[in-house]
């Protein structure tokens, strides 16, 4: 009995030292990535924050403290106010349409119709494209003198798309006219064309996960197809809707390449967004401190959506 116990103890000891060695290895595996993230994300954000309160608005770096000067300048700036207005309307329209189209299409595709995979692929392929490609093509499709306007001629309507400078329901607000810039629709159409596939895929995965018995039970209770969707299926899909809204919101708040490639700032900044302003003022104008301030505002806007989402979804995860 005795020696056997000793062997057991020895193997146990061996196992333990091996385990602690393994644990050390695990930490060593993760450490490089974590350190990189700490520096390249959190450190750099801090550094950008510092630049945003400095006087570095020329080619030569100048890190003297400027207080909130750059932020105050921006919030009083015509272009930045227009950017904030455009971002609000772009975000609302973009998310709304992506949700409605994605949900509607996913329900249609989930009806077990013939050719559903063809339809699914047609609605999904734009996701594989670059915003730059999308911008280049849609710039022509929504060009007022060609593109879709050739068809709309039949109905005698010729929208000016992204060249329209009208602001709907506008009223004076700060430097700008606050209201819905008509030109934003053109950019929204292109963005919706590209991103609907995402919400479609998410909703389709959700619909496929709903057991048939649930619909069957509702049918037996006398619910119509419409009621089943409204009362049973949509509530089940709610977490997916939340995810889609959050992910689309962060894409829309930081959008840059699509607009830069498709329309640029537009006349009177009707299609300008903070991403474009940040790029141009920093890298074309050398206003580094102003650019950093725009970037920090963008980050804060995104964080308002993302931080609660991350915390709640990580909690649900554990």
């Amino acid at each position: 009995m005795e020696p056997q116990l000793e062997v057991k103890q020895q193997t146990e000891l061996k196992r333990k030292t091996r385990l602690s060695k393994d644990r050390a290895m695990a930490v060593a595996f993760l450490a490089p990535s974590f350190i990189l993230i700490l520096i390249f994300i959190y450190g750099f954000i801090g550094w950008t924050g510092w630049v945003s309160v400095s006087n570095w608005n020329t080619l030569v770096p100048d890190f003297s403290f400027a207080g909130l000067k750059n932020y105050i300048y921006l919030f009083g700036d015509y272009r930045f106010q227009a950017d904030l207005r455009n971002t609000v309307f772009f975000t609302i329209l973009f998310i709304g349409l992506v949700i409605i189209l994605g949900l509607g299409l996913s329900i249609l595709i989930d009806q077990k119709l013939k050719g559903e995979s063809i339809f699914r692929n047609i609605f999904l392929f734009p996701m594989a494209l670059s915003f730059v490609v999308t911008g280049v093509v849609w710039q022509w499709l929504l060009n007022p003198s060609t593109g879709y306007n050739k068809f709309l001629q039949v109905f005698n309507i010729q929208p000016k798309w992204y060249t329209d400078t009208k602001i709907l329901a506008g009223f004076e607000w700060g430097q700008i006219e606050f209201g819905l810039p008509v030109a934003i629709f053109a950019v929204v159409i292109a963005a919706v064309w590209q991103m609907t596939g995402f919400s479609l895929a998410m909703y389709l995965a959700g619909l496929r996960g709903i057991p048939e018995e649930l619909r069957e039970a509702a049918r037996i209770d006398g619910a119509s197809e419409f009621q089943i969707y409204r009362k049973v299926i949509l509530p089940i899909l709610m977490p997916i809707t939340v995810s889609v809204v959050i992910i689309m919101a962060h894409i829309s708040l930081k959008i840059f390449d699509l607009i830069y490639a498709m329309t640029g700032s537009g006349a009177n900044f009707v299609t300008d967004v903070p991403g474009v302003y940040m790029f141009e003022t920093t890298f074309r104008g050398n206003y580094y401190a102003n650019g950093a301030a725009i970037a920090i505002i963008m980050l804060l806007l995104v964080a308002v959506f993302i931080v609660p989402y991350l915390i709640s979804s990580r909690r649900g995860d554990q």
Binding site: F44, I45, V51, H250, K254, F256, P274, G275, I294, A295
Partner: peptide, 11 residues
């Protein structure tokens, strides 16, 4: 999720 503009200048 961060907008990469917010790390671009230091990068």
């Amino acid at each position: 999720f961060i907008p990469y503009q917010s790390i671009l200048i230091p990068l």
